[in-house]
């Protein structure tokens, strides 16, 4: 299948992009690497009137460090993170996650911002960056605003962006050297979307002990404080599983058990 016809623009600045989107009367769609949008276009599931290619905006493919965090431009690719071409705010955790996203040929064009804007519940960044409490930097007609990623996704494939807004960056707090991470996903085929997924961040210096259950049918589930299960013991592991199972995320025992087991696997990676 081939996409339906659309118009194309490649603005040079964030302001131009916002203006193009605002003028498109809801028919505009932002494209970065196009690795999520491309299949949707080919299948004609997405039929935008205008595609606004934001890769011409130089600052979006850059990284900015501030006092206690790093802002990744929306157009930074998974491969750039995987290759450590950018600093890793989570002590190598981001690179590890990136290396497991889809396939290298996809990672060479797929971007952090694009993946988060696409908001597929089973995608890697949505869950893992929610775990590191990433903040979305969003440009729109009234300037830039910030939203916690945990609040950003509203429903499957749906995010809190109005029609003239788009993600310009992702800010991640710099984690302390003592921070520990757990990440587990279960996929039927390597590189494909996950059936179950969980990410854990424990950073005592920042008072963080947080888990996120992903690959649900909708938004990731945030468990803000899982310190009761750490350090792990066999009893605590069982309790952790029971707790997640009890959430009834999928409303179906087999899938709920998978979520619980994914959480348990991630938890087992968090060394004391």
């Amino acid at each position: 299948m081939k996409p339906s016809a659309y118009r194309y623009a490649r603005p040079s600045s964030v302001a131009e992009a916002v203006r193009l989107l605002a003028d498109s009367d809801g028919g505009g769609k932002v494209m970065a690497g196009g690795q999520s949008l491309g299949p949707m276009l080919n299948l004609r599931l997405a039929q935008p009137e205008l595609v606004v290619d934001i890769t011409g905006i130089g600052e979006l493919a850059s990284v900015r460090e501030d006092k206690d965090g790093i802002v990744y431009g929306a157009c930074v690719t998974h491969a750039a993170v995987e290759d450590n071409r950018v600093p890793d705010a989570a002590n190598g955790f981001l690179a590890r996650v990136a290396a497991g996203i889809a396939y290298r040929a996809v990672r060479n064009r797929g971007t952090m911002g694009g993946s988060l804007a696409h908001a597929d519940p089973s995608a890697d960044w949505m869950t893992t960056l929610t775990a590191v409490d990433a903040e979305m930097l969003i440009a729109g007609a009234t300037g830039e605003r910030r939203v916690a990623l945990a609040e950003f996704m509203t429903a499957p494939f749906s995010v809190a962006l109005d029609e003239a807004e788009f993600i310009v960056g992702i800010r991640i707090r710099r984690h302390s050297p003592a921070a520990r991470f757990g990440y587990f996903k279960f996929c039927r085929k390597r590189g494909e979307f996950a059936e179950a997924m969980a990410a854990i961040v424990v950073d005592p210096a920042a008072g963080v002990s947080r888990a996120v259950i992903g690959a649900t049918d909708s938004r990731p589930i945030v468990l803000p404080d899982i310190s009761a299960y750490l350090p792990l013991s066999p009893e605590r592991l069982e309790a952790a599983k029971a707790m997640v199972e009890g959430l009834g995320i999928a409303g179906e025992p087999i899938k709920d058990a998978m979520h619980a087991n994914a959480f348990a696997r991630a938890l087992q990676q968090v060394k004391p």
Binding site: D53, G56, I57, A61, C75, T77, A80, R85, N108, T111
Partner: peptide
């Protein structure tokens, strides 16, 4: 850092 192949052309 950006998508391979993108970002070369004239913008506007």
């Amino acid at each position: 850092l950006g998508p391979a192949g993108s970002g070369h052309a004239k913008t506007g």
